[in-house]
Design a binder for these strands. Structure first.
Length: 421
RNA sequence: GGAGAGAUGGCUGAGCGGUUGAAAGCGCCCGACUCGAAAUCGGGUAGGCGGCCAUAAGCUGCCUCGAGGGUUCGAACCCCUCUCUCUCCGCCA
């Protein structure tokens, strides 16, 4: 949610932002709606003040005078009710309009029309060289009997998979490896609920913009989260954090569910784009003054995880067309996938500044008792499915076997090589 | 799923249908006392939305006692619905 006071006083900031993001919003119409709304608020408040005054006087009156006062009150009530109904309507409309406004992007976020305008800014490692044609993860996974997407489809439908045999150990090895790194950096580990109320989806900015992307339970008004970001951020909803605890760092392991509406035919087969996957997510509540410093820390932490796995990647500074509406800035980490001969997104890292904290009412209080909205930021630490893909494709050999990355060996029960059974 | 109890400020906990945004206590902040602290004394301590105003300070109006509706001139207090929490029973990883 944007700052309404800022919107009112500097609408040009939002005009510019909307243009930068290629969005179409009639800012002037919303400014006028706000004017109308405030006029109504004044009128309603005035009538209520009159009413409150009469309420105080009535007990002191008696007889004819009292009856007169009561009659007047009835008249005020009629007038008030009309105005209140109108105000409620206007207010609701205005708030719904405000909910469609995006966050103000950071000055370093490039303006762009599509994914071609994302700017690669860091590279690490080199493309591995093969003296054979590298296979894609689906082929590798099926051959080694560590990925079963056919039966996933049979049981649950397209875009569902079974991880099998060594893949299961790899998942838990990745979890161990990543959690250990994060724990040493002061992240508090959480395993959050993944079925959440609508408020959590709205508060984190996934609603109303991406409503169709998420599963809703039929009997209860609960939603399956698409990322642990939702319960991690909502964890401190309606709380005032001690400034000395900032930056407050959490990491959460969760299964993630995405409907992938609108991506028909894209990345079919295997487990690149699936409805269900597990992920470790990092989340930081930060003091606004340190927000951009903490955000870079998040990015370097993410990079450290992938450097340990020795997977070649690049970091993109995402342009305004590709960042989410709550994001002020977003980096994507794209790993090199030899089987696809392409860089593909494995992780993303966003600073949402005060957009989520305003919706979820998350504040800090400093030594002087001053309160302010915290900044929130999140990053993938490890999306298991896609990281497995990167491991399969980068660590494959001529025979189609897969070597286990060194950093995972301590957690693999002696498995060093995944080969055909 | 069945039965019962409850939801009031940072916390505990009072609240008669009409100066109750809310007693009291605790906590916290400021001041006095002290070399300093404790104790004691005095004062202050919710949030949201508007208006005046310099997007400050300050002043001021309105709203908020789980949520929504109803009764009433007037509701924290009466009525209805919902949500949540707790206890017991049943079921269950």
């Amino acid at each position: 949610m944007i700052d309404i006071e800022l919107f009112r006083k500097n609408p040009e900031i939002f005009e510019a932002e909307i243009k930068k993001r290629n969005m179409k919003i009639d800012v002037l119409a919303d400014i006028n709606l706000d004017k109308r709304r405030r006029k109504l608020i004044s009128a309603v408040d005035g009538l209520r003040a009159k009413k409150n005054e009469n309420t105080k006087n009535i007990p002191k009156l008696s007889g004819e005078e009292k009856n007169k006062a009561i009659a007047e009150m009835k008249k005020i009530n009629e007038e008030l009710e009309k105005l209140e109904v109108e105000l409620a309507k206007v207010n609701e409309k205005f708030m719904a309009r405000m909910a469609t406004y995006p966050n103000i992007s950071h000055e370093s976020t490039p303006a762009g029309k599509d994914e071609n305008d994302n700017v690669p800014i860091f590279f690490w490692g080199n493309k591995p060289e093969f003296d054979f044609t590298p296979k894609n993860h689906q082929e590798i996974g099926r051959n080694l009997d560590i990925l079963d997407d056919d039966r996933g489809a049979k049981v649950s439908g397209a875009r569902f998979v079974y991880l099998k045999n060594e893949a299961v150990f790899l998942e838990f090895a990745l979890v161990q490896y990543v959690l250990n790194i994060l724990y040493l950096k002061g992240f508090i580990p959480l395993i959050p609920p993944i079925l959440v109320k609508e408020r959590a989806m709205f508060g984190t900015g996934f609603f109303p913009a991406e409503r169709t992307q998420y599963y809703k339970t039929e009997l209860d008004d609960l939603y399956l989260v698409g990322t642990a970001e939702v319960p991690l951020c909502s964890y401190h909803a309606d709380e005032i954090l001690d400034v000395n605890d900032l930056p407050l760092k959490y990491c959460g392991f969760s299964t993630c569910f995405r409907r992938e509406a609108g991506s028909y035919g894209k990345d079919m087969g295997g487990m690149f784009r699936v409805h269900q996957f597990d992920k470790i997510e990092m989340f930081i509540f930060s003091h606004p003054e340190n927000s951009w410093r903490d955000y870079e820390f998040l990015r370097t932490t993410l990079e450290e995880i992938f450097r340990g796995l020795k997977i070649h990647y690049r970091i993109l500074n995402m342009c305004t067309a590709d960042i989410g509406s709550p994001n002020a800035k977003k980096y994507d980490l794209e790993a090199w996938l030899p089987g696809q001969n392409a860089y593909r997104e494995l992780a993303s890292c966003s600073n949402d500044t005060d957009f989520q904290s305003r919706r979820l009412n998350i504040k800090y209080k400093d030594e002087n008792g001053k309160k302010g909205l915290v900044h929130t930021m999140n990053s993938t630490a490890c999306a298991i499915g896609r990281t497995l893909i990167a491991i399969y494709e980068n660590y494959q050999d001529k025979e189609g076997n897969v070597k286990v990355p060194e950093v995972l060996l301590p957690y693999m029960n002696g498995i060093e090589y995944i080969s055909r059974k």
